[in-house]
Every structure is written in C-alpha cells, then in structure tokens.
Design a protein around this nucleic acid. Structure first.
Lengths: 210, 210
DNA sequence: GCGGTTTGATTGGCGAGTCAATCGACTCGT
DNA sequence: ACGAGTCGATTGACTCGCCAATCAAACCGC
C-alpha cells in the first residue's frame, strides 16, 4: 500500500515525501484552489504524472497532509488526557503542542487550518470526525477537572473545549495573516495568555461574591 | 450606481437583491468553489447574464454579501464601544449580535465565516482590513476595562480580543457543522457561557492567592 | 527482461465571463 | 390618446482558457 524503499533505500529519496513537502509549500503559498497539480510537481522537481502515481487525486494530497498531522495532535491530547496532572498543565501542554506545531512548520499548519479545518464545507466534511475527536479529547480533560472541583460546572465541557480550541485557532490565524508578531517569545507568551484566560474563566471561584 | 425602482417600484422586484439572496443559499449549500454562476442564476430564477449585469464577477457577489453584513457588525461593536456600561455588558452585546446574526440567517453567516473570514487566503485577503477592524473594536472595549481596573493587564487587549472572537467563531462553526444543537435556548445559553468564560478569565482577581 | 518507477504530452470537460439580440417601461411630440 | 424612439434590464448561446486526470512509452534496478 504505502510506497517506498523497502529495497530501494540509500540514495533514492522517497518521492512521495518530496511531493508532500512540496505540496505544503505550494498550498501555503497559493491555496489549494489557487494552485495547479503541475505547480506541486514543479516545486517537487518531479514529473506531473508522478503525483498521480502516489496519490489518486489532488484532494488526496491534501487529505494526507491533514491526517498525518492531525493524528499527532490527537495523540498529544489523548496523552495529556491520560496523564495525572493539574488541568492547567494538561491544557497548557495541548496549547503548547499546537502552537509549537505552528512555529515549527508554519506552512503545514497554515494549510491544515485554512484549507481543511476551516474549509469544513469542502474538505473538512471528510475530516469532521477526526476534528471532532480533538474537541472531545479536550472536553474530556475539562470534564475531569469539573469532577474534581477545579473547574466550574455551569460551563459545559463541550463548550469549554470549543472556546479553548477556538481561541488557539484564532491565534494561529492571527499569525498566519501577519496580524500579530511571531517570535519565539511571542509564541511562549501567547501560550500563557490563552491558558491563563480560558482556565481563569473556567476555574471554580472561591465563595467570594460581591 | 445603485439600482433602481426610483420609478419602477411596486410590482417590480429588485433583481439585484434576489440574486444576492439566491447566492446566499447556493454558497451555503455548495460552497463558493463548489457552485457555478449558473446555479445562482437558476436559484434566483434569472438569466445567467443578469448576474453579470449587476456584478462584475462571481467574486464580487461574495464580496458584497460579506461587506453588507460585516458593516453591521462593525457598527454594533463601535456602538458598544462608545456606550457607558460595564465590560461584561458590552461584550455580551457583541457576542449577542454575532450569535443572533447566525440564528436569524444561518446561511449568510455560514457563507461569511466559511468562505470569507476563514478563507482569508483567497478572499479574506481583500477583506482583511475590515476583519481587523472588528478585532480592534473589541480590543478597544477590553482596553478601557483594563484602564478602569476591571480587567487584568497581563493579558493584552489584542490577544484578549482574539480569544473572544475566536471562541465565538468556533461556536458558530460548531453549529454550522451540526456539532452542537441549535435551539433558541442553546443560543442564549451559549452567549452566557462565552461571556462568562472569557470575561471570567480576564477579570482582575481580588488579592486572593493560594 | 521483468516489475516497479518516472516521464510529460494529450485529452476531456467544465465553467467564468462575453455579447448580440430582445424586451418592456417610460418619454415626448403630435 | 397614440405611436415612434430611447435606454436600461434581461436573456441565454457561445467562446475560450484552464486544469485535473489519463496513458503509453521510457527508464531504471535487480
């Protein structure tokens, strides 16, 4: 099913990978609809037809890029979910994972967010289930915090997870469209701020009203 | 520049409007890229060419839909901004405006969010300035709350506004893709929860640490 | 010389945008 | 009143470029 160098090895590069990496750059630059398959082939220095040797369609290239990465995110969330630690720490780890993903590979994250996550009409539809799993993972983390009394219960875990994810996505969107500066420090600072804000809003208040 | 019925009036419907309304339905159903101009014309029961009589391109139809509505949002934000009232109330009004817009015209909001706001690559680019103005308006509201001590200052107004808007947008996205139930009560409840969560996280804490 | 890889010219269909022709409301001269 | 003339609104067949996808042939590595 999957290609590769079982025998090839050594000098031969994995062309499939080369194509995927080129696609990331092209999709990020021109958008999925704004580029031609030949642009991808060119960027990869590969013949047009080879793209179709490895992928059955232009869509499948995007699908693959998305799934590859999203799987990692899901794993990260599930791992935090299982861990024994304060909520803040868990959520901070999730925020950190997403933001680091962006800082390490802005193009890929741009493609995932702009072309898949947000374009849920066209593509997202196919990936809705995977996307939903991420929300649910976060919701699970929130729920356990509610159960142990750290988080208030009048904001449902489901909504809380949407807010949390939404805030982070908006952050990335800001970076993607150069609305806000991107530097190592900004990224770190941003993590603190999202977690502070959302967790702050979700934490159960001491009986201190007035 | 603008169309007619100065004399026409009465029976004559404003075809331009009919086309726009049809476009909302078609864009919402099939997506901007997934539909043909002829689909819009058909839905509007109007000849193909008429679309081009009123709009110079398919893009312009979408642009018009976006701007029409976004202008209202900006006005609402600016109005709240100017008003003398507690932050929570102002932000609640903004959240309310957006969520009500969705509940009154889900298709239009779907189009705006899915095809413009989030597709900032293609279209958003053109509307980035307008979109930014919304963020800035919200940020201004946050700033004034910081100045008067209601909101903490270690979460910048700029980021706070991103979180706030992001949370709301994610909410709409959830509704758009049927991830969460949509009923009058859900909408109201959702407003409370976003505002509670975000404002809760942004409010200055009483010197109560431990 | 066989099986998997790589090539790129070719094709087929599609859809945005054009345009020339018709329609019909309103004007105005008689 | 009436009809010829005007001009914007409306029509839909057609063009034209583009691009996803195919495919037959060349090209290895073993």
């Amino acid at each position: 099913m999957s290609p590769k160098k079982t025998t090839k090895a050594a000098t031969a590069v994995d062309k499939r990978r080369v194509i995927l990496d080129a696609a990331i750059r092209v999709f990020a630059r021109d958008g999925f609809h704004g580029c031609r398959v030949s642009d991808i082939a060119n960027e990869a220095n590969v013949a047009y037809g080879l793209v179709y040797h490895y992928f059955s369609s232009k869509d499948e290239v995007l699908d693959t890029l998305f799934s590859e990465r999203w799987t990692l995110l899901l794993a990260a969330i599930e791992q935090e979910d299982a861990r024994e630690a304060p909520v803040r720490e868990k959520l901070r780890a999730v925020a950190s994972f997403i933001i680091d993903s962006y800082s390490n590979d802005p193009d890929l994250m741009k493609v995932i967010i702009v072309e898949v996550t947000r374009a849920a009409n066209t593509f997202g539809r196919a990936h809705l289930a995977e996307i939903r799993r991420a929300y649910q993972g976060i919701a699970t983390i929130v729920e356990s915090a509610q159960r142990e009394g750290t988080f208030r219960e009048d904001v449902s875990a489901e909504f809380a997870s949407l807010f949390f994810y939404g805030a982070i996505e908006q952050l990335l969107t800001g970076w993607i469209f150069d609305e806000i500066p991107k530097s190592r420090e900004e990224f770190e600072h941003a993590k603190d701020m999202v977690v502070e804000t959302v967790c702050g809003g979700l934490e159960a208040r001491m009986p201190e009203h007035a």
